[in-house]
């Protein structure tokens, strides 16, 4: 089954709030969505084709498409192209694939879905939104490119994988969970980390509250790469050893950064 396909009728000249446009939504064409400071029917902006409740494809993305897959509970949502802010925010299930880049707060407060973004993401990947105490709490997000400021801020669980570089303040106030970076850190990473694990290629860019705890053969690493395809892909299935840095000791944190040499 191909599922529904949304094809933009033209370029957008204001932000589009796609809240509610999910696989399985009934009467997509008439779904009321935000367009700038008006509400319009989804059918005004997109032509809707195909059928099937399990899958929804947006054939033609745009950085103006906000809240794509926000609150997704099941099914698959695929975007050919870029998306805007709050991709898959609070999604509890299903999977999201973006063949392009995403804006700020991608996978923010994710709670169980699997999100893959082939390109870059903006600031606060997997972070807590306004007023929320916790960021991504379960599920997985994999970013093929690089991530913006404060990726993983207040992450509470789950797995974040960024294959490229991560801007300043990664894992700020991270509470728990696993955050893996294939590229470089740009500084101030892990500030305020309470618990949780950073899996890194280099300790360069960690904040000053981390202290070296030596090289270790960790059985846990073997389990991680066997249970997480994304981590296996990044670090190889033979992963067994890492250098452990503990932090953020300034906040009496019990988190760790595990440096996996290439």
């Amino acid at each position: 089954m191909t599922g529904f396909v949304l094809t933009p009728r033209g370029a957008f000249d204001a932000r589009v709030d796609l809240t509610g446009a999910l696989p399985g939504a009934s009467d997509l064409e008439r779904l009321s969505i935000g367009y700038g400071f008006r509400r319009v029917a989804l059918g005004d902006l997109f032509s809707v084709s195909g059928s099937g409740a399990d899958r929804l494809t947006i054939a033609g993305g745009s950085p103006l498409l906000d809240r794509v897959a926000a609150g997704l509970t099941s099914g698959e949502l695929v975007v050919d192209g870029d998306v805007g802010a709050e991709l898959a925010k609070g999604a509890t299930g299903g999977s999201v694939v973006v063949n392009g880049s995403a804006g700020a707060y991608a996978a923010s407060e994710l709670a169980g879905a699997h999100v893959t973004i082939s390109g870059d993401v903006g600031e606060r990947l997997g972070a807590a939104g306004d007023g929320a105490r916790r960021g991504l709490s379960s599920g997985t997000v994999v970013v093929g490119g690089s991530a913006g400021l404060r990726a993983g801020e207040r992450q509470r669980g789950g797995v974040i994988v960024v294959k490229g570089d991560v801007a300043e303040g990664a894992a700020t106030d991270l509470i728990a969970g696993t955050f893996a970076v294939g590229g470089a850190l740009r500084g101030l990473a892990g500030r305020g980390m309470k618990r949780g694990t950073l899996l890194l290629r280099s300790a360069e860019g960690l904040s000053s509250g981390f202290a070296d705890a030596g090289e270790h053969d960790l059985v846990m690493l073997r389990v991680l790469v066997r249970r997480s395809e994304a981590l296996a892909e990044l670090f190889g299935e033979g992963l067994t050893r890492a250098r452990r840095f503990a932090g953020d000791l300034n906040v009496a944190g019990k988190g760790e950064a595990l440096i996996v040499s290439a």
Binding site: G112, S138, T140, G157, G158, V159, A176, G177, T178, R195, T197, H216, D217, L218, V219, M220, V223, L224, R227, S228, L231, K254, E256
Partner: peptide, 22 residues
Amino acid sequence: QIAKNVDGRRIWRVPVMEGEFV
């Protein structure tokens, strides 16, 4: 002790003199 949640499953790592009990 440290919990790790991956793939919807949680493992525990308990520090022991030898290293970690997982």
